[in-house]
Design a binder for these strands. Structure first.
Lengths: 344, 344
DNA sequence: TTGAAAGCGCTAACAC
DNA sequence: GTGTTAGCGCTTTCAA
């Protein structure tokens, strides 16, 4: 198979110039002045022979692969990439698009037990890396040491020298809780993912507590439910709440997918949302507007997050900028999952 | 930055051997017999210096990049990758995992107007390509000509010489329709994506018509609704059906996401599912079991599809096999969206 | 059992 | 303005 692949030398010969000239033209180097007619000859030869540059060879010679790595969490079994959560799909889609516009391609890889992401990055000569929602401090330290530009997405408390993009998670928690309080709720629960020392969930918790304090409401540990961010945990929790007399009149849930499960569980347990219990979510993805009842939730702009992450890595690679820490705003989207309580 | 990256030559020097020897050892070449002690020396040097091979350089020398391309449809605006449909996320996740186990990484790229995927494949020296759900005949022909192993997923009527994996779409349509008929329905609609000459939707339509014919039921063009596979189109269609007196008692919908929108539209239009109208979907993804009512649907195994696709490209690359056409089975999952009609 | 050296396709001094 | 040439880091004949 494979008719011999034509390369730069072929073009040089065809156009009667040297490979250097071809290279200059292909790379449109502003520091090299080439005669228009030479350019024309070369471009014609390229077209005629159907030449496509070999980026691998270019990377080897120029130490610039135009490859970006996207590192996302893996599933519980520590194997497959967590694309079950549509958040990551949206992120990838926008990230790829933005990167492609600037000439970069995306390499997707999970990690195996015997290989850190750092190895993948080096093997593949990645120009830059975007890490979303994970906290592998050791890897990140190594990455920095090796000098691979890295951007952290949704990470707190990590290296401040690295560029990062997050949303205003604390404010999200605050807005949700304030809203609930404004609707007359006084016992407000929080359903969340695991509360690591530093992470989005912890930030959202902070906002929640701040709002409570703001109104002199006590914070009550019994109303804080923490587990995995998953439909399943939501379902379980919903069922449990439905069967418990000591339940809050509203709950702020730190992810739509979790809220989705929760509401399902609540219903299964015989409760109505929002008649019997109110729910506010977080994300405002596809699910939120389409579940029943439509979910009142905190909206974040995933597309923008992805776009900015791409810009930040590329800026870092091209040494335009370093260490920007971008925080995107959030807002509350009012739908039908919260009931207004009439106070006595 | 960047402490000089250590390479094979460094290892060779450190271990007191030649780079050829290092290469043999790293690649565990069975055709080269190396003295155990030499192996040990080299392995120690590798560990000591923290050497990681440069796959780009290896690809250049060996014409084997261990990079696979995954080509998925782009959104209407022809720009971003269509990861809004969770099907692709699941596919990617499993595909990547399977490929990684065999030493391959995945390159994700959309295409721009001025560049075909073929160019990406050549530029990046992809070893193989998996194309899912798209029909770019010209590209595929070129790919074959260039000699890049290609696997087609969910494509009909394309080149039979290429490996492919599909599901038994026709049977899916048949099963769904037979089931509806068995439940007493006699006027059965079909809601589908665009009916291209050859594609999954057309196959599902065939199965639908076959079941109707099987029972002497007339096929009525008025009951075939075709548009985009999207929540939005489903919603629109649902609303429309709800307002129309001439509506079927049941409808087979060729995608869960479409069924989801349809049911929503139906409800908005004042109809109850399944009391007023029954629905059967296709895919059995996350949505199906979680919408209300839970959707009776045709189940396909996306994970398996992805795994097989990975195996097939890799087999083709490693010349183990050629042109396998795998067809995966489907089955019906009974839930709550179909009502049993009592015949008079 | 190991090594020397050519070459994969490209870039980037440097020379002309 | 353009060409020569030495690498980039690796594989692979061929010899020893």
């Amino acid at each position: 198979m494979a008719t011999k692949r034509i390369n730069m030398k072929d073009i040089a010969k065809e156009a009667g110039v040297s490979t250097a000239t071809v290279s200059y033209i292909i790379n449109k180097r502003s520091d090299q002045v080439i005669a228009p007619q030479t350019i024309k000859k070369v471009e014609e030869a390229i077209k005629r022979l159907g030449y496509v540059p070999n980026l691998g060879a270019r990377a080897l010679a120029s130490r610039h692969s135009y490859l970006l790595g996207l590192l996302i969490p893996q599933t519980e079994k520590e194997t497959k990439l967590m694309f079950s959560n549509s958040f990551y799909g949206s992120f990838l889609s926008n990230f790829e698009y933005e990167a492609r516009k600037k000439g970069y391609n995306i390499l997707i890889s999970g990690t195996d037990v015997d290989e850190s992401y750092l190895d993948v990055a080096r093997k593949r000569s990645l120009d830059g890396i975007v890490i979303v929602g994970v906290e592998i401090e050791s890897d990140i330290k190594d990455l920095k040491q090796i000098g691979i530009p890295t951007v952290l997405v949704d990470s707190y408390g990590m290296d401040k020298e690295l560029s990062s993009v997050t949303i205003d998670d604390e404010n999200g928690g605050f807005l949700a809780t304030e809203y609930l309080i404004g609707m007359g709720h006084r016992t407000i629960g929080l359903a969340t993912g695991y509360l690591t020392k530093e992470g989005v969930n912890t930030e959202r918790l902070k906002g929640y507590e701040k709002a409570l304090a703001n109104h002199g409401l006590p914070k009550d540990g019994r109303y804080v439910y923490s587990g995995t961010i998953s439909y399943e945990y939501g379902l379980e929790l919903g069922l449990q709440l439905a069967g418990s007399p000591e339940r809050p009149s509203a709950v702020f849930v730190t992810a739509d997918i979790l809220a989705f499960g929760l509401i399902k569980g609540l219903k299964k347990g015989g409760l109505k949302v929002p008649e019997d219990i109110s729910v506010v979510g977080f994300d405002d993805g596809f699910l939120a507007s389409n579940m029943e009842p439509a979910l009142t939730t905190i909206r974040q702009d995933v597309d923008e997050k992805a776009r900015i992450a791409a810009q930040l890595v590329i800026d870092a690679i091209e040494e335009k900028e370093h260490g920007s820490n971008i925080v995107l705003p959030v807002s509350l989207v009012e739908r039908e999952s919260v009931r207004k309580l009439v106070l006595n």
